[in-house]
Structure formats: structure tokens, C-alpha cells
Design a protein around this nucleic acid. Sequence first.
DNA 1: CGGCCGATTATCT
DNA 2: GATAATCGGCCGG
Length: 197
Amino acid sequence: MPILKRDFYDRPALTVARELLGCRLVRIQSGRRLAGLITETEAYQGEEDLGCHASAGKTPRTAVMYGPPGYAYIYFTYGMHWLLNAVTDSEGTPAAVLIRAIQPVEGEEEMTSNRPRNAGRRGWTDGPAKLTQALKIDGGLNYADLCSEKTPLWIESGETIEDELITRTPRVGLNSVPEPWRSIPWRFMADPEAFRG
DNA sequence: CGGCCGATTATCT
DNA sequence: GATAATCGGCCGG
């Protein structure tokens, strides 16, 4: 499958979050391909979005979101979890899409050994920190260019998901964020039915 | 199966 | 010094 180019990401986070559903997240680990189809995303758009880390302004952590689109924004939270985002929108506009869940399609053995405690369980890659563990993604890949096959991380086009198979809900974990940002439905979930076959 | 709670540290105030 | 875009283990039903 062709790798997604920079102009794919050079749009508002809301648009990219919708279109990333069904795309193939690829991680090269020791020369092998680990990949999963993206099943859940969230959009974070601009300093005015009080759920977005960039609402605190440009800091060393958020600087990557202010740069050009198509790069990885990977940050650490809750003292133990790495979360993967794709920077979107044009340079100077801080925006990103959080990848929240994938369905493994390549290299499942490697992913299993990356999270031995959860091997064989149901729903073992359906959370933003679970998938980074399965794909061995951490802060070392922050700023990785998702548009280059020279980096060990990129996204390819994949399956097209019909609107009827997509559920939108408020974003997760923003309980202390004011309205309307706390409740705005910027989380996109693809129905598992969309991935059969 | 569902809900509660402890873990653990980078980042910003 | 407080907080955090979460997870997983342990509990009870």
C-alpha cells in the first residue's frame, strides 16, 4: 500500500482523524513489519481547543505540533504511558490526531512478545498506550517523519470506511476541560464490522 | 463483566 | 508541587 504523503496531513485534524480510520499503521522493528489497521482516533485542533496540549502555548513538548504536518508527536502521560499522535494542519497551526486503537494485521507474533503479559487476550491493542507497547513506540520516535520510509514508522492507505460504520463521541479523559471542548464529538471509532475479511 | 483504585514521572506553574 | 489525552489488577456480583 502507498505511504500517505505530507499533503494528506496538511489539513485540519478533524478531517485527518476521520480519514485515518482504516489506514495501515506500519512500524519496522528489527527489519520486520508490524502493522495494524487504525480503528479509533481523536482530533486535537489549535490553541483554542482547550483539550489540546497546545492550548498551553508553545513549549518544548508541544513544539512539534507547531511544525510542518506529517510528523510523529509522541508524549508521555500518567507516569508510564507513551501515546502516538500524527501532526496535522499547516506549519504554525498546532494540531494533531491521537491514534487510539488498531487491529493487528502484520507481525502479530512480535506484537505479542512486546506485551507478554497480555498475549492472547481480547482487545489487547484497543487503547492508545496498549498499541504503543505492542509496536514498541516511545519518546525516541518523537519527531519521526511519517512521510518517509527511512524512518521506522509511517502510515499507508488502507481500507475505506463508510460513514455508516463510524461512531463519533466526545474525546476520552478530558474531565477537567471546560465546555464545549470536553463534550465536542471529536473521537472517531470504526465499527469492527468494517474490518471483516 | 463492570467498577474502583494504585502505579509512576515528564512537564508546566 | 500538582497534574496528567491510561492501564491492569483486584474486587464483588
